[in-house]
Amino acid sequence: MSSRDRILGRVQRALADVPQDDTPYEQAIPRDYLREHGARRVAETVDLLAENLADYRALVHRCAAGELPTVIAGLLADRKATSVLVPPGLDEDWLAATEVTRVADRPESTPQELDRVDSVVTACAVAVAETGTIVLDGGPDQGRRRVTLVPDHHICVVRVPDQVVSSVPQALERLDPTRALTWISGPSATSDIELDRVEGVHGPRTLEVVLVESGSGPDDPC
């Protein structure tokens, strides 16, 4: 007998008490928890995102669409970055104001090569205000998972308010489970020394999030 059959057989015998007509999944789970916590105007949701990102030590910057290239160039300059990883589908305009050497993540690039790059600039798939989280789904403007992992400095651009949701349930609705997803809430951290949080272990130790107002008016009514 294969172990698969053995385990499934054990499970079935263990569940002899469960009736054939046991409550189906749809009715077994009460879904009376909230879809989001509190009522907020769109602008307030964006403010909450900025606040929660900063609370977990991400550096938050806000700007209008036209200012984005200058802001990114400034962040790279402040960091004294000489090279920046660029996902294949990143909007070329975003890096229009910087002279820093662009590095592409080719399939044959080794992790050691990526480790020599100073910074990485990406977009994101969605951002969650209540938890201060950005989610990457490996889209062309975000690149492979490793590009946002190995360099020590990650600049992530969030288009607000379009890419911002309030809550975790709303974020999951927007995401495609077949893609490799990375949820990021602040820079790498640990609670392993005396259960107290310290920032900066293996992932990027500096996370900068740029909230860029997408085209239309910044303060649309809810």
Binding site: G132, A180, T182, S185
Partner: peptide, 21 residues
Amino acid sequence: STAERMNPYTSMWTGTTDGDG
């Protein structure tokens, strides 16, 4: 567990992804 609104990193993967990971 860590008393955070969200932990710093959560990874989700479904089988393998071509050219990534």
